[in-house]
Amino acid sequence: MEAIILQVLNGLDKGSAYALIALGLTLIFGTLGVVNFAHGALFMLGAFCAVTFSRLLQLSHSVVDETRTDFLGNPLKVDVYYVQEIFGETAGAAIIDWAVPLSILFAIPVMIAIGVAMERGLIRHFYKRPHADQILVTFGLAIVLQEIIKYFYGANPIPTPAPDAFVGSFDFGVLLGFDPGGIVYPYWRLIYFLFAAVIIAAVFAFLQFTTFGMVVRAGMADRETVTLLGIDIDKRFTIMFGIAAAVAGLAGVMYTPINSPNYHMGMDFLVLSFVVVVVGGMGSLPGAVLAGFLLGIIEAFASMTEVLDVLPGINQIIIYLVAIIVLLTRPRGLMGRKGVMED
């Protein structure tokens, strides 16, 4: 029982990342009808937003500290963070410590801007083109974005730690009445899951309960009629693209403490999140979220040593295996609609 709960928890954080990326992919596909292979790159850009932001916070200049001297008796030069100068010693240190969560504020406008620019500049010209062309051009864009990041940030992973408050693990088992140490789960992964849940809920609420969301849903169902009613649906879809980019970006921002970001992390996630989208059913938002968590948890179970003893290597292929089985038994994925992307 403990092992099962532990594996479910282990699956949740990876599942959250899959779900968030797949959600963004599906939003773009559902609104614009574009298959966005650059979505993994947006995830990666989000992660590098966090890197950039924490570097910005750590900008410093050296000041001569008259009160202290080095061993020769000269006044000591000390690096002082600008943040600490502005907000004071303790508050500044806290801000630097909380760089990753704070970069959410930085990442949202940046990612929306990137998303809107991408849609206006490139994707817009590909609505009428075949899906293969869309896949190829966004794939090219993904390579370009990835190489730009590699040029500026280098090829090595950049460690970006979580705030000190969240370092360490949470003894989850005690809450449920198991022995202490039975189910131990890192705080940050818990935070990541909760964060993902909030974002997913927010996106659904936004689509369901706001006028803007209603118009977007109407546009997804019947674009032509909405246009005939005098609504500038293109503009709203552009904004939705920005939101989808922000969702992917935020998934990236919060993922940095779990895995140090590197320039190819987007590609690594892209392939899997496409599998997730397809398993969930192209164009279905709940399907994307469901499949994301499902595949994350299944992957965690397949990584258990008990399973690996019986079926070695199963953890490497389980997602693809599940994808093949789902696609062969349920042609449109778990919750897909008829006639989407079948030609």
Binding site: V278, E342, D343
Partner: peptide
Amino acid sequence: RRSGIYFSILTLA
């Protein structure tokens, strides 16, 4: 047995 992107994902898998 599938076409479109489903075929692409199956071969990828």
